[in-house]
Amino acid sequence: MNFDNPDLAAVWLTVKLAALTTSILIVIGTPIAWWLAHTRSWWKGPAGALVALPIVLPPTVLGFYLLVAMGPDGPVGHFTRFLGLGLLPFTFWGLVVASVFYSLPFVVQPIQNAFEAVNERHAEAAATLRASPLDTFFTIVLPLAKPGYLTATVMGFAHTVGEFGVVLMIGGNIPDKTRVVSVQIYDQVEAMEYGRAHGLAAGMVIFSFLVLLGLYTLNPTGRRK
């Protein structure tokens, strides 16, 4: 979709980025969360810490390493070129990859908490009724973990919308490809176009508030996660 209005174009791009990132994260986050919730392995600690890293790392660290790793001399850059995909920085897909890293803990942790809260006995009962593990997962565990998934989806989406530093470092500020709302606002403020910045910034405040309000109203347990 193309918009003549650069602000609308930035909004659409941001929504597209957040929706894609969240979908990918739900798919890859589920097995990670499952493993973290059930493993007794020594690796649980290090793996959990690795997943949580983006919460504490400055976005500049992530942005810097991604730029170098995805560049022509970096390991990821070699790999993507080997696959014939070219290089990821300055592309929409580069932002998707970065956002998946950046929002990973916000999706994995709520799902992991939900899995941990599911009573093992329900699954065991299903197993005695000859349900396959996969069957048990989809008919027993998943419905019980629904509040966790709701929190994960909302937080993953909202956190990707709120992404800024990483995009600034690897995006290159290209309209319709990498110029997301947060970068557009930053540009407008830096250029003292306060009037235009207000429109988008106020929109972001209202959006974020409504998202969290919705989450807390629909899903009271989300608050504790």
């Binding site: 730029l67 170098v68 995805m70 560049g71 022509p72 001399d73 290089l87 920085p89 300055f90 290159g172």
Partner: peptide, 9 residues
């Protein structure tokens, strides 16, 4: 400069 020096541009 950084975009060029890292070879990304």
């Amino acid at each position: 400069y950084q975009f060029v020096s890292t070879g990304n541009a």
